[in-house]
Amino acid sequence: MSTRSALPIYLVLLLIVCLLSLRFGAVEVAWSDVFNITSETPNANTQVILDYRLPRTVAAIVIGSYLALSGLVFQTVLRNPLADPTMFGVSGGAAFAVVAAMSLAIYLFPVGESLQVATSYLPMAVVPVIALVGSLSATALVFWLAWDRGFSPLRLVLIGVVLAAVLNGIVMAMVLTLSETRTELAILWLAGSLYARDFSNVLPALPWGVAAISAIVILSPQLSALRFDPQTAASMGVATRTLAPVLLGIAACLAASAVSIAGPIGFVGLIVPHLARLIARPTIAAQILSCLFIGAILVVASDTVGRAVAAPLEVPVGIVTSLLGAPVFAFLIRAQAKRI
């Protein structure tokens, strides 16, 4: 599909899932409320939509596009169809760093039980920075552990998965021992949830993400060359040895800023690049654009499904994406098996 014909389709789909996301949730509202949110006479329902659902939908769009593009860069640079930023210690490291900083803050400045929302233990602006440092360190650790005269695709992913489990364990231990509102923290930092996320969570992550996306777009010719083996890429004038780590670092930052908003939402970075490659033309520009849109659509849709399936109960968005993503992951492992 050409980019020119795909763009309107993506926009229409995104608009549809966003409207659904504003319409469904714990509080029953009517379609008329959704379309009247900008009207002069606010009522209780339009307030719910404006104060709770709209920020949440925006957060879902941001997270989805960040994670999907990050996944595309990981898969392209590593030439590994199983790569997903949340599996390379990115989300585990981010969650670990943020929860450790929070535990420290709680320990140093005990604030009582008035602060209910998890990330408000720390100034919002520093959360993405801490997440960034944590995820870059964890990603470096995964690559160091997996290095064996090259990176075998399966070994790399397996080590990432196990490191994620260890970091999750440590996060769980910290959450359970140090915080009063521990259940909320656990849901957020272990499964990934958009519950109670608003603009104050999204805004600090925006500059980092926009910077990372711009860098990826600027580097897209080089990224395109990295799809080939190192010799071919070198013959196209691309310094693989310096560019590959730089691009992976940028992608890790992008994923970390997504994780700093709503915790580790798995498999978005795995599935979406595959979908984008199926749908979009095989140019890197078309794939980047498709990833941004499909990622946003997927996360908004998953969050809406999680909220609507048994309202007012809520299935965290990370669980919905895992249910969708794990079968795809299994299928990709199977495909990898056939190729060898």
Partner: peptide, 17 residues
């Protein structure tokens, strides 16, 4: 690694379910 990754995929699915 492949058997274990397949197991991890199955495990993630059932844990989420």
């Amino acid at each position: 690694s492949r058997l274990i990754l397949a197991g991890v995929a199955v495990s993630i699915f059932f844990i989420a379910a």
